[in-house]
Design a protein around this nucleic acid. Structure first.
Lengths: 346, 346
DNA sequence: CGGCTTCGATTAACCGCTTAACGCAGACGG
DNA sequence: CCGTCTGCGTTAAGCGGTTAATCGAAGCCG
């Protein structure tokens, strides 16, 4: 049915340029890479010719001779049903991309079923010299990927707390501080029973938030309502909320671990005849169009995910360039109060 | 601060295998690529050794000797604020990935600011032999990328209607049919004034839906409420909804072009004291966790985005393999009625 | 003015793999 | 018994770059 133009004649190479200009391949290579050893005059002629005949560097050849692949890899483990539920990753990727493309790096992305397959992807990419470094997300406790990537020697930035990143370079934010701030805020409003609908158990940041939540409640003398874990889906969030709201000591405020579960929780509360924020205060983790669009708009823990991704990318590029790199602590999420939080009515 | 293991000893190559097994490089290459000219015994020994020393093919070297790059490119043009608002792309990418990884292809993804930059990315990738083919999304009318990619000779699948894809291979679904089905459904419920909050003007699928909407209204003798265009954000959706609901001939039903604007519309309606679905029926385009989580859950035009992406990837692989390829028409979105649609109260 | 560095450029070798071309058995056919 | 396949291998020659080693011609210095 549809077809395209002819397979395009052989692409020009540095050898072609060398012939035209009347110099050696090496001079062309040096000139085009901005290295010294070429006079300004020759460099100009070479660049002119390169431009004229539409020369594009062959990255395969370049990679073969030991240079960089100019790409980094990211394997995203998402079971189908969790895909697309979180604006988080699109934003993160956007931030990563921003930095990478400025450095003419590209991002190899693979969405895989589980961490096992993700690890395979990293292995393949690295083995094939397809990537110079990797970004790892969804850090779990005792994550098997950490020792595996360490063994590979693949420069890797882990998006997650240093406590779980082994010798890999971490980029993280202080979730515990954010939890504390939120609990203090709710306590100040007068709440005594605060619940929490958390994310996936086993993720490092989940247990950090779990612990911080428990600690903050204790410190402030609040009733520690049980934490319900979810898989971040609306459905699970709804179920968890129902359970919390039906428990003997119904909380007057709930802190959610992402936006989708928070919105689901809001719906459940309204279905049960509870008014938000009068009867129940809701705080969502991660600000997103979603939480601002519902009524009332949700109080949320805001973080600049785009910047977060950008920082991760910058850290990785530094790691690749210098062979070693410092971790980076991003600023902690900040509480953005909106209509979903108020003093409890009771 | 953090550092990784030593730069990892030299990776094993086919030469290493050859030495160990005691045959020539070529035999190893042939064996590992399943080509003939190698006895079963030798092939077995070679495979065993390859496995044992953890051999991974160097794709750069392979690409250099004329083989495929085993990757396809996708440049996603998203202004920052539109990023992450649409689950659509994460799902699409998931579907694409699924098919690609089965074929051991990887996806080069770049998020760019505009189509201009996107085109640059395609050029660079193709020039560098980084990709064997490309997927193009967000097809606009008179899209400048179409002639540009045609000229490059880059095998490309366009996700969008054939009317705008030139000689590139299209993968599309019959949006017009879906619009008709929806309008007929609303008419059957008794609605006479139906409004529409559309997506970005200039996108091919937007105008196709626009026209189908107008045609369906005319055919059924409905009042053609003006169509309001948005940039798919909740904010724009809220504004458009407000405008429609305040217009002299207030529609009793509104069809939205994505999920976010539909949810925003729902909130606006509720704020204005309208009950959904009693006073206003709402239909969202694209089913997503989001539309199912709000109250009432929204009637939506469901399509299997994952499959859509998978089909696009399959089509592209065929195009790459055979040099030519047929377009693919995916099934039209289907209406999934939920609580947000009902006969009008009046 | 001889020896030293600097600059601009060159040649050689190689990265890891593929493709082309050829070699040498043994099997087969007339 | 010679000619010709056929199966299993080999060697040679790149693909398009890069890096290392080298080299002539200035330029500089004491």
């Amino acid at each position: 049915m549809s077809q395209q133009k002819s397979p395009a004649a052989r692409r020009p190479t540095i050898t072609d340029i060398a012939k035209i200009v009347g110099v050696s391949k090496v001079s062309v290579s040096n000139a085009l890479n901005g290295r010294s050893g070429v006079s300004e005059a020759t460099r100009a002629r070479i660049e002119a010719v390169a431009e004229e005949i539409g020369f594009v560097r062959n990255s395969a050849a370049r990679a073969l001779s030991g240079a960089r692949a100019a790409a980094v890899g990211l394997a995203l483990a998402r079971p189908a049903r969790m895909l697309g539920t979180e604006p988080f990753f699109m934003e993160l990727i956007g931030g990563i991309e921003n930095v990478l493309s400025d450095a003419s790096y590209s991002l190899a992305l693979q969405v895989v079923a589980d961490h096992e397959r993700g690890l395979e992807a990293y292995r393949r990419w690295w083995g094939e010299r397809h990537i110079d470094g990797a970004i790892m997300v969804d850090l779990r406790e005792n994550d098997a990927r950490v020792p595996a990537l360490e063994a590979l020697g693949l420069p890797t930035v882990v998006i997650g707390h240093p406590s779980g990143s082994g010798s890999l370079t971490p980029v993280w934010s202080d979730d515990a501080a954010a939890v504390r701030e939120t609990v203090e805020y709710l306590a100040a409003l007068g709440h005594r029973r605060v619940g929490r609908v958390a994310g996936l158990e086993g993720l490092v940041h989940t247990s950090i938030r779990d612990r911080a939540f428990a600690a903050a409640c204790t410190a402030l003398g609040l009733d520690a309502a049980p934490t319900a874990h979810t898989d971040y889906t609306g459905e699970a969030g709804a179920r968890a909320t129902r359970r919390l709201l039906l428990s003997p000591a119904r909380p007057t405020a709930i802190l959610y671990d992402n936006d989708i579960t928070a919105v689901a929780g809001l719906s459940v509360a309204q279905e049960m005849g509870l008014q938000v924020p009068r009867d129940l205060s809701i705080v969502a983790w991660d600000d997103s169009p979603l939480v601002q669009v519902v009524r009332p708009p949700l109080t949320a823990l805001t973080r600049d995910i785009h910047a977060y991704g950008a920082n991760a990318a910058r850290t990785l590029l530094a790691l690749i360039a210098r062979g070693r790199g410092d971790g980076f602590e991003d600023r902690a999420p900040r509480l953005t109060p909106r209509g979903s939080t108020a003093p409890p009515s009771a």
